[in-house]
């Protein structure tokens, strides 16, 4: 496949954390209008397969850029840091303590009288945390000294922690609602 491998280029966007989601969405739709398998359903089998691969790649690219955490991870990857390969665990101890406390709160919330309200509280706290880490990441990218790279990685890792916790809250909520 010879499509531009850089997702930002693919959608005609500048390679940066702040992107215009509306133009991303419209670029995505315009591209899918030409690549989607529905547009090639009457073509040869080979063309159908090719279109499926393109469309799958474009869906993945769109998802990556739409989600702030995935976008941040992707930006790091473009600058040569693959978080999936990074197994170092030296994290800010204060942050780790906070996370442990949150986890304990989560445990307590499940058995509270009104678990939904408690989970809501934790959920909005996590949301705030996520937003502030995003701000931090944004400023660090602008200030692109080599020394700040390590810090940038740490912020994204913190975002990953928060995302994992958010996922856990969602799972508990679904359990409560018996879905």
């Amino acid at each position: 496949m010879t499509a531009p491998q850089n997702y930002f280029q693919l959608f005609g966007l500048n390679q940066q954390f702040d992107i215009d989601l509306a133009s991303l969405a419209s670029a995505y739709r315009n591209i899918q209008r030409t690549t989607h398998p529905d547009r090639h359903a009457h073509a040869s089998k080979r063309d159908q397969l090719l279109s499926m691969q393109y469309a799958a790649n474009i869906n993945d690219a769109y998802e990556t850029l739409t989600c702030p955490l995935k976008r941040a991870t992707y930006l790091l990857k473009l600058s040569g840091i693959d978080l999936a390969e990074d197994n170092s665990t030296n994290m800010d101890p204060e942050f780790l303590m906070q996370q442990i406390e949150l986890r304990e709160k989560l445990e307590v919330a499940q058995h509270a009288n009104d678990p939904e309200t408690e989970l809501d509280k934790i959920s909005s706290h996590l949301h705030q945390q996520m937003l502030s880490f995003q701000d931090e990441f944004r400023t660090m990218l602008v200030d692109d000294k080599a020394s700040s790279l390590e810090k940038t990685v740490e912020v994204v890792k913190k975002m990953q922690f928060v995302a994992k916790m958010q996922h856990e809250v969602e799972r508990l909520e679904e359990e409560l609602l018996d879905y």
Binding site: T2, A3, L10, F11, G12, A27, N30, I31, R33, T34, T35, L50, S51, Y54
Partner: peptide
């Protein structure tokens, strides 16, 4: 190549 050209044209 056609698929790539299509994407460019769409953009």
């Amino acid at each position: 190549r056609r698929m790539d050209a299509g994407i460019k044209k769409a953009l």
